[in-house]
């Protein structure tokens, strides 16, 4: 083994890969979230479908997409490698009585479970939206606009998926898991990279908490919005089409 592979397979090396990929995936979450906010635009999905057409066809985005595949791949692979190593390190006999809740946060001890829930969600999510958008299976938008007529109608796929109760439940559960995962993961990433300083670490900690809450709540709001407030065409239900909801929808 060369010094490079030795470094990257050492305990600290693997943690550094975890941290770098984790923080990279945080930037992906921001981009994904901002793009998806177009679901709330009240235009029968015109803006969202134009956006998803761009994301699916732009060569730069398609190249960066491979970086994302590698980011997820390494993050998941290192998680399994480190979990195996860490489980073995405890030894065959565990504690009869262990009150770790008295010395640490629940989220920090359960990153593997939280990550596994997110992984199951990711597989379902990719199959339902990404796979169908990339490899066919979606209806065309149609309509009078010659520019958008042939775009895939991913918006309607989103709307119909978000009217299935178990699908909404899976999404919300996954976003709660993501929130807890980020609660620990965000600041943990900085710590692993050695970025600990008495001036900045408290700031990183609270930015991480805010990031975890805002990102997971905003993602969870999407299935809940369609399930609770719209009909199966994505239009606001008449009964709850209050002025406030219209104000929110038209703000986009």
């Amino acid at each position: 083994m060369s010094w490079i592979t030795k470094t990257l397979t050492s305990s600290i090396g693997r943690k550094i890969i975890m941290a770098l990929t984790g923080l990279f995936l945080c930037t992906f979450l921001v981009v994904h979230l901002i793009g998806n906010l177009q679901l709330f635009k009240h235009d029968q999905g015109a803006a969202f479908n134009t956006y998803s057409h761009f994301m699916g066809t732009n060569p730069i985005i398609r190249t960066i997409e491979w970086g994302l595949v590698l980011g997820f791949g390494f993050h998941i692979f290192e998680a399994f490698a480190l979990t195996r190593r860490n489980k073995a390190a405890r030894g065959a006999t565990g504690y009869v009585s262990n009150h770790s809740e008295q010395n640490s946060e629940w989220t920090s001890r359960n990153m593997g479970i939280l990550g596994s829930i997110i992984l199951i969600f990711l597989i379902v999510h990719l199959y339902n939206f990404f796979w169908r958008a990339r490899f066919g299976g979606l209806d065309k938008m149609g309509g009078d606009n010659p520019e958008t007529r042939d775009y895939d109608n991913l918006y309607m796929a989103v709307v119909s998926s978000f009217h299935i109760w178990w699908y909404v439940l899976l999404y919300v559960a996954a976003q709660i898991s993501l929130g807890y995962h980020l609660w620990h993961g965000f600041r943990s990433g900085f710590q692993t990279l050695g970025l600990n300083h008495r001036k900045y670490t408290p700031v990183i900690k609270y930015v991480g908490y805010a990031f975890a809450v805002v990102v997971s709540a905003a993602f969870a709001a999407m299935p809940l919005y369609f399930f609770l407030f719209t009909n199966d065409q994505g239009d606001l239900k008449a009964a709850i089409a209050s002025p406030i909801m219209h104000a929110v929808a038209s703000a986009f």
Binding site: S10, S11, I12, R14, K15, L82, R85, N86, A88, A89, R90, S100, N103, S104, E105, S108, R109, M111, H184, R187, S188, Q191, T192
Partner: peptide, 22 residues
């Protein structure tokens, strides 16, 4: 020291903080 630590079979830090608390 890190090579020896890994060789001895200790786990990798996940920034839980139990160590510093105890």
């Amino acid at each position: 020291m890190v090579a020896q630590m890994d060789k001895e079979g200790f786990g990798a830090c996940t920034n839980i903080g139990s160590c510093a608390a105890e």
